[in-house]
Computed example of a mutant assay.
Amino acid sequence: MKIIDFFHGNGVGENMKHVVITGSTRGIGYGLAREFLLAGCRVTINGQSQESVERSLQSLRKINPDTVEGYAARVDNRDELEQLWIYAEKHFGTVDIWINNAGIDQERKYFWEMAEEEYDKVIRTNLKGVMNGCHVAFNHMLKQGSGQIFNMEGFGSNGMMREKMTLYGTSKSAVSYFTRSLAIEAKQTNIKVGTLSPGMVATDFLRKSLDEHNRKIFNILGDKVEPVTKFLAAKVLENQNNDARIQWLTKPKVMWRFATSMISKRDIFN
C-alpha cells in the first residue's frame, strides 16, 4: 500500500476529469466537490433528497455553471446508484473518479440500547452503500477500460475504539478491510481502488461528539473543511496507483501538532 501524506506537495495534476461524489451536498463531500470544480473538473454531486441537491447546486454553480450537475439517490439502494451513474455519464461522459463519501453517524448510545432500525440504517448506509457504489462504478469502469474508486475512511478505520461509537467504528473498519481487499482483486484490471483519510474535520458530524474532555484534542488534531478537502482533491487528481491511501492526518503531523500545541492555540469550531 502506498501512503500519500501531507508532506508530499499539492499539485492538482490533470484537470477536466469527471468526478462523481456520493453524499456531497454538505460537509467533506461538498468540500471535495468544490475543490474539484476549482481544479477544472466536471463534477456530479449526490444527496438523498432533490432539495438538498438543488440547494448545493445553487452554490456550486457560482464556480462554474457548466461543469456541475447533481442527482438524488440513496446509497443503500444499488438501483438508484445505477441511475446516478447513468445520469452522470449522460451529462459529462466518462466517469474518471467515483468517490463513496456518503455516511451517517450513530446515536451516542451503547450498542445494546439501540433499536434494530438504528443499527441497520448505519450499516446499510456506511457499509452496504460503499459496496453498492463500488459495484456500480467498477462494472461500468470495466466497460470504459479505466477509472478510479475511492472510499472514505473514518473513526474506526485504524482500529481505534470508543464507548458509544461501536457501530460507527465497526462500519468504517469494515470499509477499510473491504477496500484493501477489493484493491487486491482489482490488480488484474485497469481499475484503481483506494481510500481517503480526512482525519478530524470540523463538520456537523464531528460537532456531535464535542464535550469538554475531547474538545481540546479536536482543536489540536482537527482541521476546518477547506484545507483538508483541497489536499485530498489534489492528491486524487495526481494519483496513479492502485491501493493508494491518501491521508491528511499522518503520524508526523500528529506529533508536530502535539509538540506545538502549547504555543499555538487553535479553535477549529469558530
Rank of each mutant, 00 (worst) to 15 (best):
M141A: 10
V193H: 10
G129H: 03
L127F: 15
F155Q: 05
M160N: 12
A202L: 01
A174G: 15
C134W: 00
I149R: 00
T179K: 02
L196V: 00
S146F: 15
E185T: 06
S173I: 11
K128M: 13
F178Q: 08
K187N: 14
V136R: 01
T195G: 06
K128F: 06
A186F: 02
V175S: 13
G154D: 13
H135E: 10
I184S: 09
S209H: 01
K208G: 02
P198H: 09
G194I: 08
F178V: 08
L182I: 09
S157V: 10
K128V: 15
G199I: 01
K187T: 13
Q188V: 15
K172E: 08
G145I: 10
T170H: 12
H140E: 06
F178M: 12
F155M: 14
D204Y: 02
S157L: 04
S209Q: 05
S197A: 14
R180I: 11
M152V: 04
G156P: 11
N151A: 09
V201M: 05
I191F: 10
L196I: 02
S146N: 14
M131P: 05
S209D: 08
S157W: 02
M165N: 09
S181G: 15
N139F: 01
F155A: 04
M160C: 01
S173H: 06
N190Q: 12
F138V: 15
D204P: 11
N190K: 13
G169I: 02
R180Q: 13
S157E: 05
S173P: 04
M152I: 07
T189I: 05
G199N: 04
A174Q: 07
M141P: 07
N190V: 13
K192P: 05
K208M: 09
N132H: 11
K143F: 06
F150G: 02
S209N: 03
V136M: 04
T195C: 07
A202I: 00
S173D: 08
R162T: 11
F150M: 01
S146W: 12
